[in-house]
Structure formats: C-alpha cells, structure tokens
Amino acid sequence: MFPFSFEWIWDMSHMVFHGGLWYALGIIGLGMTFCILKSVVDTLQGKGGDSHH
C-alpha cells in the first residue's frame, strides 16, 4: 500500500493501481476537509440557524 512496504515495486501496475487509489482517497479527503472547514467558518459567521436549504 505504501512505497516502504517491501512488496512495493516501482512498476506500471503499482503506479496505475495506487495512483487511482490515492487519487480517489485524495478527492474524498480534500472534499470532506473542505466541507468541514467551510462548515466551521459558516457556523462561526452565524449561518445555519433555522433556515433550510
């Protein structure tokens, strides 16, 4: 899973497979981080009372 595990080889298979994996994980991680941070900021700005989206 990581380049430091001993099975890791810098070949095309590993780069494609783990490239795809970390790309997806990156999007999910960044997306969630963005949502949480923006929600914190919104909350601090006093948004989100009883209004509905």
């Binding site: 997806a24 999910i28 949502c35 923006k38 929600s39 989100g48 989206h53």
Partner: peptide, 26 residues
Amino acid sequence: DKVPFFHNLSHNMHHIMAVFAATGAF
C-alpha cells in the same frame, strides 16, 4: 438540523455531492 454546525455541514456536503458521486461511480 437545529445544530448550526450540522446544518451547515449537511448543506456544504450537498453542495459538492457531485464530486463524491463521480468518485463513487469511478
């Protein structure tokens, strides 16, 4: 939903749901 942070989080997650959905489809 009455908790402002949860309300905002729900709203913000809805907002970028297309990104998650696309990742899910992939």
